[in-house]
Design a protein around this nucleic acid. Structure first.
Length: 574
RNA sequence: UGGCCCUUGGUGUAACGGUAGCACGACUGACUCUGGAUCAGUUAGUCUAGGUUCAAAUCCUAGAGGGCCAGCCA
């Protein structure tokens, strides 16, 4: 997959379209006043402790999109300050996901861990300035001393050590003389601040852990707050965009930049993406994988980039979705129907049409000669004439969808039923004459006659049929496996639980995956490459899964087509 | 009972003191060799109470509702 690099400056473009959210307004103000000398420098700063999901896509589109729109740059920075959770596997996946979405970062790939030396120097500077101290309080004690939301904290008894002692102790922490958790380096700010983040926050903790990049060089690691702003500062970020939960951290972000006297970017917070029927927490997604509730990070039911990609989503659809949801400070919930709308819109434009039968019902055309075969012309994509046409084989025995036949049709059902005539897509008009049932009374075969004059689907006498159904020639059909997906959770809000003692897991949809096999598809699909997008006419969009083998194709149903009939039927039965 | 932030149709958003608009969804209808796509239309909104103003979704005050914060996670 080739991703375009960050695009060339397009300020004129920006002028024309105008700001489309509060962050763009702010940037345009800065551009007008020359606050950053006309620069726009953003960054996307994931922690490599899990796979990226659709929520991250919002942030990626925002940060890289802003850089594109205003002729700036966006860095990819891995925020890797916690060696116990971070792995190379995640770094690789993140790179590939950002590229898949269509963004590039040239050589601007950074790691917070590359700044560890500088961060250490800045810690020394704080100590020398009397703004930081080594604290011997235990984890539990620190919590007690911190106070509560309504009660001010109490100063640590180690708060007023001499600069010399702090320097020595901190050096010994770095040298590995103390066990994990025995000491921390803390900033000396204000234990009575109503903002708990300002109550002498921990800067460094002791962690004798192997880091995925720095190896065993360090046994003390900086905290997020002591790392993020300074990393932004080093990279000369202008607009440091993060999600709402970091709002309370902004005073601390500002305090470090100001106290250290270094370049000071502006932190701006926006609302993260929430989607109905979807769980976005990285921790819980990890649990789904570990507890084998799904088949892996790239399970097509997962909201991960890798999951939706495997499911058959396109980067264009995801980017359009991100454009449409906008950027605000309101923490709302977006209807997943909007995502699916953007998906269908893109897939409708690009997908080749084919015919495939998910739940086969045998049809015999009694007046069609056995052993004969006809080749009928079919349009590949009515939305794109340049996609051309193909030929589909027709013969005496066919498969149609079980749903497309009813022995006792409800009203307004214009598919196949005894005595009723329908059009076979691109084929002939056929009329149902009789049915064959098994011992249980199930219809297992439908006998029809066809009208040879309607070849191609048109009646020379101008008569109309209400229904057109899809089909495949039994003799020529390819048996394939199809995986049908539904929402992973049964409730719009997976956290809304039915009873005491239950958690979000109780809302997992037991029917989120249905494997159907054998299904039959037209022979033109032979050799279809993994990742290919197809529309199975009247059913939905399907994507060739990587589990496909030379002997059997596997399809994921990306999303169904809108189904008016299903809606009508549902309403009538309700 | 602390601090910070937020509140516009069912949902997501626009309106920058001057006609509340767009999209998704839902519902009609037209068209159709996909009950698809497309097209046309309908539905439905400024959290509440005060105040400022000729004029308030917008500014001010109070209230209500919601989110975040008491990791040596990010």
């Amino acid at each position: 997959m080739t991703g375009p690099e960050t695009q060339k400056p397009s300020p004129d473009n920006a002028q024309n379209s105008g700001p489309s959210n509060f962050i763009e307004e702010l940037i345009e103000d800065d551009l007008r006043t020359g606050k950053w000398d006309g620069r726009v420098q953003t960054r996307f700063p994931p922690e490599p402790n899990g796979y990226l999901h659709i929520g991250h896509a919002k942030s990626i589109c925002l940060n890289f999109g802003l850089a594109e729109k205003y002729g700036g740059k966006c860095n990819l920075r891995f925020d890797d300050t916690n060696p116990t959770k971070e792995e190379q596997e995640y770094v690789d996946a993140i790179r590939s996901d950002v590229r898949w979405l269509g963004f590039g970062w040239d050589d601007r790939e950074f790691f917070a861990s590359d700044y560890f030396d500088q961060l250490y120097q800045w810690a020394l500077q704080l100590i020398r300035g009397g703004m930081a101290y080594v604290c011997d309080l235990s984890n539990d004690q620190v919590r007690e001393y911190r106070g509560t939301l309504t009660k001010p904290g109490v100063e640590s008894p180690y708060r007023n050590r001499s600069i010399e002692e702090n320097l020595q102790l901190f050096e010994r922490m770095r040298a590995g003389e103390f066990p994990d958790g025995s000491r921390t380096l803390r900033a000396k700010i204000d234990m009575a601040s109503p903002n708990l983040n300002m109550r002498d926050p921990v800067l460094y903790r002791i962690l004798h852990a192997h880091h995925h990049r720095s190896g065993d060089k360090w046994c003390i690691y900086p905290m997020y707050d002591f790392t993020h702003g300074q990393s932004d500062s080093i990279e000369r970020i202008t607009h440091s965009i993060c999600t709402l939960e970091f709002e309370n951290h902004r005073p601390l972000y500002d305090w470090f930049c100001d106290t250290l006297g270094i370049y000071h970017p502006q932190q701006i917070e926006f609302a993260r993406l929430n989607l109905t029927y979807t769980m976005m927490s990285k921790r819980r997604l990890l649990e789904l994988v570990r507890e084998k509730k799904v088949r892996g990070w790239d399970d097509p039911r997962m909201p991960t980039i890798q999951g939706i990609r495997r499911r058959g989503y396109t980067p264009e659809a995801v980017r359009e979705f991100c454009r449409r949801i906008g950027v605000t400070k309101f923490d709302g919930v977006t209807d997943i129907a909007l995502l699916e709308h953007c998906l269908r819109e893109d897939l409708n434009r690009r997908s080749l049409r084919v015919m495939g039968v998910l739940r086969p019902l045998r049809v015999v055309i009694d007046n069609y000669p056995a052993g004969e075969c006809d080749h009928l012309e079919a349009v590949n994509n009515p939305e794109d004439p340049s996609a051309g046409t193909r030929t589909v084989p027709f013969s005496r025995e066919l498969y149609i969808e079980q749903d497309d036949f009813r022995e006792d049709p409800p009203k307004k059902y214009y598919r196949l039923a005894p005595g009723q005539e329908v059009r076979l897509r691109y084929g002939y008009f056929i009329t149902c004459r009789s049915v064959v049932k098994d011992d249980k009374g199930q219809v297992v075969e439908v006998h029809c006659t066809y009208d040879p004059a309607t070849r191609g689907g048109n009646a020379p006498d101008g008569r109309k049929v209400k229904g057109t159904i899809h089909w495949v020639s039994a003799e020529h059909a390819l048996p394939v496996e199809v995986r049908l997906y539904d929402h992973l959770f049964m409730k719009e809000d997976p956290d809304e639980v039915d009873g005491a003692g239950l958690d979000w897991r109780s809302n997992l949809n037991p029917n989120s995956l249905e494997v159907v096999s054998p299904c039959y598809v037209e022979p033109s699909l032979a050799g279809a490459a993994p990742g290919g997008h197809y529309q199975f006419e009247r059913l939905g969009y399907f994507n060739v899964d990587k589990d496909s083998t030379a002997s059997q194709l596997v399809f994921n149903r990306t999303v169904t087509l809108k189904d008016t009939w299903a809606k009508i039927e549902k309403r009538e039965t309700a």
